[in-house]
Write a protein that binds this DNA or RNA. Structure first.
Lengths: 255, 255
DNA sequence: CGTGCCAGGTGCCTT
DNA sequence: AAGGCACTTGGCACG
């Protein structure tokens, strides 16, 4: 655990190089200018930001607001430091071929430490979870739906849930965990058409299973003769409702 | 600029509340456990991470590696701190209804500062830039292409470049800055069909303009009678090549 | 590797 | 607010 307040460039460079070698996670509060070239080209004029170098050499530049880094370079970059009129950090990666340059005119704070974290996050509520739920509770689609397979691979993509109805007609289901749009319908169509061709059958029933559909998407769905089943993804928004009501009032009164 | 090494929970809570009120950017190196519920449900067991609270109350939890936060809550969350056996941070937001809880068993480092950054990043090489380039250099598509409009809005999406050929037939171009896939072709198809209907014409020429196409996408393109024009997005990979060669060797020798 | 596609996608813009 | 879509998308799984 190292912490340096307003170090000069030479000190900062030494600390940074040491921390990078030791694979420490580095956080840098600084005034900087950033240039990026690679998959695109970008320039960010001087301002105060937080630069992070992670233990896999991921490099992030964060503005004081916003969820996403304003500039970044992915893991495995080659990172170097130079001093002169400024402290300059360069990061370079191949595949994709990219280069980033951070010109730092003032280092306000520099901290670093090695973090140990073996845990992976576990998430419930993905599209796969939704498909599984439908497989287990086929009545969510219709009374006569009999699921047969999950996440079947085809050349045109993979089909979330497949099965048949009472009359032996194939049924294909495309799940979306959020409102389904035009894209979802076209995806469904691709699968239906492909399956028709491959299996040599004339009729295949196609379903969109989602919490909702956009209006245009619904129109397209009808045009092509597919169906919609309203299904909520599992474990969505189980946040306590009364607490949320109180929060709503609170935020309102403070705005 | 405040920096606290291994503060006790009570101190940390006070500092955090003060920093939050002052809208400072907070960085916290700590050992923590994270639970999230809202659009999905997730749990992350105890480990060492960096927690960031940005000046708009964006909350990020970063693992020691990887580009993206492992947990987050977007700007405008209501953030609170509690102490007891642990230091607990809760963040709550409505729309979407979400809740996050960070249970901190050890605070290794706590820093905060108010950052000032008025600059916006400027990016060159987007799809829009590509469309503009084609508009100015129509020969990139074909010798007889005459562009007329850019980013035309339609109900079924917006069309990157539109124009006609020498014979007065409408030409629609869908740009992709990376290899075009099945989705791109279906997008193009949607626009072509829509335009045919709206303008009441039988023939519309459709183009994909991209640096490349996937094999399946190419097949689909041919099936539907559309065309492909190989176009590189502007300013892509202008990184010095000889320097990259050296880097490649360097990384190889160090692996 | 490329190809396809989900993501707690995010962010932007337009109706 | 809803919808459509690009993104230096990122990330994974499968051929």
């Amino acid at each position: 655990m190292r912490s340096h307040v307003e170090p000069d460039f030479e000190t900062a460079k030494n600390v940074l190089e040491h921390a990078l070698r030791r694979r420490e996670l580095i956080t840098l509060y600084c005034e900087c200018m950033v240039k990026y070239e690679g998959r695109a080209y970008s320039k960010l004029e001087r301002g105060e930001r937080v630069v992070t170098i992670k233990q896999d050499n991921t490099l992030l530049v964060h503005k004081p607001t916003g969820r996403n880094p304003i500039n970044w370079i992915k893991e495995g970059a080659s990172i170097k430091f130079k001093t002169g009129d400024a402290l300059v950090i360069t990061a370079e990666s191949i595949n994709p071929r990219e280069h980033m340059m951070i010109n730092i005119s003032k280092v306000n704070l520099l901290v670093s430490a090695e973090l140990s974290d073996a845990e992976e996050v576990s998430i419930v509520g993905s599209e796969a979870d939704m498909a599984r739920m439908i497989y287990e509770k086929p009545y969510l689609i219709s009374d006569d739906f009999k699921p047969v397979s999950l996440e079947e691979q085809t050349k045109y993509g993979f089909i979330d849930v497949m099965g048949h109805n009472g009359k032996g007609t194939l049924v294909i289901i495309e799940c979306k965990r959020v409102t389904a749009g035009l894209n979802a319908v076209q995806q469904l169509r691709r699968y239906v058409e492909k399956i028709k061709k491959v299996k040599g059958v004339k009729k295949v029933v196609g379903y969109i299973a989602a919490p909702g559909m956009s209006k245009n998407a619904e129109g397209m769905l009808k045009d092509w003769g597919y169906k919609f089943a309203r299904v909520e993804p599992p474990n969505r928004n189980i946040v306590d409702k009364s607490r949320q009501q109180k929060l709503k009032k609170y935020l309102k009164s403070n705005s």
